[in-house]
């Protein structure tokens, strides 16, 4: 199978200080990320997620291991032409307007001159940044910076999009907007790799996840498989009376089943916030 990203036995050591003490950031990591999926790379701060992505993108060299992107050796120009990247806490040249930045990135990514205008407008539209695209980036809010960062990452229509903490510091409305962009990319058949420690969002948008800790891979699999407890079931019941509950318990016990807890369903605080605050503040 041709994977979007294939990482085999990746190890990355950093040398610290004059004595060159070795700090192992990634330890014998092997990962295979299938094409056309949203893949979440999770873990606490300092677990090696961002380092792994930097090695994949050729920004940092590997101490050991092999990496390929879309079947090409990583860090080659050909591989990067098919990859889009949004770094953590992106910072762009403040004096450029959003449109100028996206155009600049499109030019660097090899978009043909004849397709440039259309590609830039498409990317701005996808990130819902058309209206603010004429303003200098220095005037953008945090959420708008992330969205313009997303636009520059996808302007050359890459097959693989790598997002490093795309919702860090962004409010729930902005975060939901980025979630929609990720879904739009998946619907177009793109592979999205999402590096985050915001587990709620990852659970909502990702098809597969990998969890890293101290540079090692500790879990990998489809979100559904990883989170489901096959030996437990949840039923949501409307208008349940004490009598109905007693009858249900008796019926279940007759079949050897047992109710272990009964609670009221809750919506998440994030859902409630998004319902109350309809977000057009960034537009």
């Amino acid at each position: 199978m041709n994977y979007a990203i294939s990482v085999r036995h990746l190890t990355k050591d950093f040398r610290i200080g004059i004595r060159g003490l070795k700090l192992r950031a990634v330890d014998d990591l092997s990962l295979e990320i299938p094409r056309g999926q949203v893949y979440g790379l999770l873990g606490p701060n300092g677990c090696g997620k961002s380092t792994t992505l930097k090695v994949v993108l050729g920004l940092v060299s590997a101490t050991a291991g092999e990496i390929s992107i879309l079947g090409e050796p990583s860090a080659t120009s050909a591989a990067r032409r098919r990859t889009g990247f949004l770094p953590e806490a992106p910072y762009f040249h403040k004096f450029l307007t959003g449109r100028e930045l996206v155009r600049y990135c499109a030019q660097l990514s090899g978009v043909a001159a004849s397709e440039l205008d259309a590609a830039v407008e498409d990317a701005l539209g996808l990130a819902a940044m058309n209206e603010a695209a004429g303003r200098p980036i220095g005037t953008y809010s945090k959420g708008m910076l992330q969205r313009i960062g997303f636009a520059q990452a996808v302007v050359h229509d890459p097959e693989l999009i790598i997002l490093d903490e795309p919702t860090a510091g962004v409010d729930p409305v902005g975060s939901a907007s980025i979630g929609r962009m990720i879904h739009a990319m998946r619907d177009k058949g793109k592979t999205v790799v999402l590096c985050s420690h915001l587990l709620g969002q990852v659970e909502q948008v990702c098809d597969r996840v990998a969890i890293m800790d101290r540079g090692k891979l500790v879990l990998e699999g489809a979100v559904e498989d990883v989170l489901s407890r096959r030996d437990r079931h949840v039923m949501t019941i409307e208008a349940m009376t004490p009598t109905a509950r007693a009858a249900a318990e008796a019926a279940l016990e007759a079949h050897g089943a047992k109710i272990t807890s009964v609670t009221h369903p809750r919506r998440s605080l994030e859902d409630l916030f998004r319902e109350l605050v309809t977000g057009s503040r960034d537009a």
């Binding site: 930097k54 050729g58 920004l59 990067r80 990247f85 949004l86 910072y91 990135c105 990514s109 090899g110």
Partner: peptide
């Protein structure tokens, strides 16, 4: 320092 180099060097720019 501002990490704009990260964005640029992740593109097909040597």
């Amino acid at each position: 320092d501002n990490k704009t180099a990260l964005t640029l060097l992740a593109k097909p720019l040597s």
